[in-house]
């Protein structure tokens, strides 16, 4: 394989991978504060993109504003989901929560189906057109790829800063570590759960907007994306967002290079087989510590 083809695969790998990483971080934020795996995570991504597309098609809303509105609306939906379906259940079993979030994912997908139909839609490119490209070290890439990499990078960094240095971020981390203790310190734990759904929905929607020009958007693309995001979250170790970034890039690269060895129709199998292998042999994730995993249940 010549160097420029390798680079081409490599760049497409990390582009897809950075989206997986953002979805996985969405999983982690909710999992950390509630212990729930939100099966509707992929739907946030699709809803965000669909709203943004609708706003840009009106013709008088500029692109940045359309994205901002889409993110705000999806954030509202995230909050509504938590308040209506999750908040008031007392001591729910995991089975019950799994089924509820699956139900939410089905309903939001079908609602999207009825509103936007089955057509494949696309956001306009942020800069340039579908044919413009940038040459980097002999590989030609769409400018949108740079947008994706840049914005996902910013999302990751801003979230890290938020959780490390702001009071709200610290409060959320306290809830993740021990909810009862956090409540005793005067943290409004229930508020933090709603907030985690909102942040998770917001970054999902933003990820949907920035990738839509490349990957295009259809109402039913959420679930496969959620599965990939979950694979990444597991590979990195559930709840560990730094590891999710590494895991996401890794999965993106594996998928991208797997086309050399296996037919394209089986591309998705690669991710799932990685998931199963990791679940079977090291459910704490490849970066999970032994002592930590001894305390957890899988």
């Amino acid at each position: 394989m010549s160097f420029d083809i390798f680079l081409q695969y490599f760049l497409s790998g990390i582009t897809v991978g950075s989206i997986y990483a953002v979805v996985a971080i969405g999983f982690n934020i909710i999992y950390n504060t509630t212990g729930i795996i939100n099966f509707a995570q992929g739907e946030f991504v699709i809803l965000g993109a669909l709203f943004a597309i609708t706003f840009t098609r009106t013709g008088f809303i500029p692109l940045p504003l359309a994205i901002l509105f889409a993110v705000l609306i999806t954030t509202g939906i995230g909050a509504a989901i938590e308040i209506v379906f999750i908040k008031w259940i007392k001591n729910p079993s995991v089975l019950r929560l799994i089924i509820i979030t699956i139900g939410i994912s089905i309903i939001s997908r079908e609602t999207a189906h009825h509103i936007w139909g089955e057509q494949v839609m696309q956001m306009p490119y942020f800069t340039g057109t579908s044919t413009s490209s940038v040459i980097i070290l002999g590989a030609s890439i769409a400018p949108q790829v740079l947008w994706v990499l840049g914005i996902s990078g910013i999302i990751v960094i801003v979230l890290q800063l938020f959780f490390k240095f702001t009071l709200t971020g610290k409060a959320m981390r306290a809830c993740a570590a021990n909810r009862t203790a956090a409540r005793l310190c005067g943290i409004n734990a229930k508020m933090m759960v709603t907030l985690s759904f909102m942040i998770s929905a917001a970054i999902g929607a933003l990820a949907g907007c920035i990738t839509s020009p490349i990957t295009q958007t259809q109402y039913d693309m959420g679930s496969p994306l959620a599965i990939k995001g979950f694979v990444v979250a597991i590979v990195g170790g559930l709840g560990n967002s730094t590891a999710a970034v590494v895991g996401g890039l890794l999965l993106g690269l594996i998928e991208s290079f797997s086309i050399i060895f296996i037919p394209n129709a089986f591309k998705d199998v690669a991710a799932i087989i990685i998931l199963l292998v990791i679940l079977f042999f090291k459910p704490s994730g490849i970066f999970g510590k032994k002592e930590e995993s001894a305390l957890k249940e899988f």
């Binding site: 995991v94 599965i227 199998v269 799932i272 998931l275 199963l276 679940l279």
Partner: peptide, 27 residues
């Protein structure tokens, strides 16, 4: 291997199995 897992992990592992079967029969 799958039944050693619990909760979310079990759900996702069986979901993955189902998706593999779909991909295989479709491809």
């Amino acid at each position: 291997p799958v039944l050693r897992l619990k909760g979310h992990y079990l759900a996702m592992a069986t979901l993955g199995f189902g998706m593999i079967i779909t991909t295989i029969v479709r491809g």
